Lab assay of single mutants.
Amino acid sequence: MVYKIRDKETGKVYEVTIDEETNEITVYDVKTGKPVKTVNMTIEELKEAGYEVEPV
């Protein structure tokens, strides 16, 4: 599923895909559409880390 996340401190917005089964999150560069990095976190962990998470 695709989400937009926003860093509450910097205001930067990222587009991510989240595999609900493995909790693998792939972060994409919004301008190029290319993957930047992959992390292993849940949506709740993202929120605790200071991100706003919205489904696209």
Rank of each mutant, 00 (worst) to 15 (best):
Y28Q: 03
M41Y: 05
E21Q: 12
T32E: 07
E44V: 08
I18T: 04
M1I: 14
E54L: 14
P35I: 14
K47T: 08
E48V: 08
K31N: 13
E48Y: 08
G50V: 03
I25Y: 03
E48T: 10
E45T: 06
K12M: 14
E9F: 12
E52D: 09
E45G: 08
E20S: 12
G33V: 01
E9Y: 13
Y51C: 07
Y3C: 08
V13A: 06
K47F: 12
V39D: 04
K47L: 14
T10A: 01
V2F: 12
V16C: 15
V36T: 08
V36Y: 07
A49P: 01
G50T: 03
D7C: 12
E21F: 11
K8S: 06
M1N: 10
K34M: 12
T38Y: 09
E54M: 13
E20K: 12
Y28H: 08
E44S: 10
K34A: 11
E45Y: 04
P35G: 03
K4W: 13
T26E: 02
V2M: 12
M1Q: 13
T42G: 06
G11S: 03
T10C: 10
V36H: 05
T38R: 11
D19T: 05
N40P: 06
D7H: 14
G33E: 03
T17Y: 11
D29Q: 02
Y3A: 04
M41S: 06
T10Y: 02
K31M: 14
E9P: 01
V30G: 10
T22G: 06
E45D: 11
Y28P: 01
V27N: 01
E52K: 03
G33H: 09
D7R: 01
D29N: 05
R6C: 10
K31F: 14
R6G: 01
T42F: 01
V16T: 01
D29L: 02
Y51W: 15
G11Q: 04
V53L: 10
D29C: 07
V39A: 06
Y28M: 10
V30R: 08
V13R: 03
V16R: 00
E21G: 09
E24K: 11
K47H: 07
E20P: 14
T26K: 07
V36R: 03
L46D: 00
G11N: 06
Y14A: 01
V27F: 15
I25L: 11
T32G: 05
T38A: 05
K12Q: 13
V16Q: 00
K31Q: 15
V13M: 08
Y14S: 02
D29K: 00
D7E: 08
I25G: 02
D19F: 06
D29T: 01
D19H: 09
L46C: 06
T32W: 03
T10K: 02
V2G: 08
D7N: 13
I43Q: 02
K12F: 11
E54F: 14
Y3R: 02
T10M: 02
D29W: 04
I25V: 08
V30F: 11
N40W: 14
V36F: 10
M41E: 01
T32K: 01
I25T: 04
A49R: 09
V16M: 14
G11P: 00
I5T: 00
E44L: 09
D29I: 03
E20D: 10
E45S: 07
K4A: 06
V39N: 04
G11Y: 02
K37F: 15
T32Y: 04
Y14R: 00
I18Q: 03
V56Q: 09
E24S: 14
E21P: 03
T10N: 06
E9W: 10
D29Y: 02
G33S: 05
I18S: 02
P55T: 09
L46S: 00
D7Q: 06
K34T: 09
G11L: 03
V13C: 11
E21V: 12
V27L: 15
T26P: 00
T22R: 14
I18A: 05
P55L: 13
E9A: 14
T38V: 12
G33F: 04
E52T: 07
V2S: 10
E54I: 12
D7V: 02
V30Q: 12
M1V: 13
K4I: 14
E15P: 05
K37L: 14
T38P: 03
T42L: 02
V2D: 07
E54Y: 14
V56H: 09
E54R: 05
V36N: 03
E20W: 14
R6F: 09
E48W: 09
N23I: 04
E54K: 04
P55K: 09
I18W: 15
I43M: 11
G11M: 03
T42M: 02
T17W: 14
G33D: 03
V27T: 03
V2R: 15
T32M: 04
D19P: 00
K34F: 11
P55M: 12
V36S: 05
I43T: 02
E20V: 13
V13I: 12
T22H: 13
K37E: 06
K47E: 09
T26F: 07
V39S: 05
T10R: 02
L46M: 06
E15W: 15
V30Y: 13
V56I: 12
K12D: 11
K37C: 15
G50Y: 05
E21I: 14
D7T: 00
K34H: 10
Y51S: 01
A49S: 12
G11C: 07
D7S: 08
V53W: 08
Y14F: 09
E9V: 14
V39K: 04
I25S: 01
E20N: 10
T38L: 07
P35M: 08
E44M: 10
V56P: 08
K47Q: 11
D29H: 03
T17K: 10
K34D: 08
D7Y: 05
V53I: 11
V30A: 11
Y3P: 00
K47D: 05
R6I: 12
E52I: 09
V16K: 00
P55F: 11
E15L: 15
Y3W: 10
N40I: 14
Y14L: 03
L46H: 00
T22Q: 08
M1E: 08
V2L: 12
K4S: 07
D19V: 06
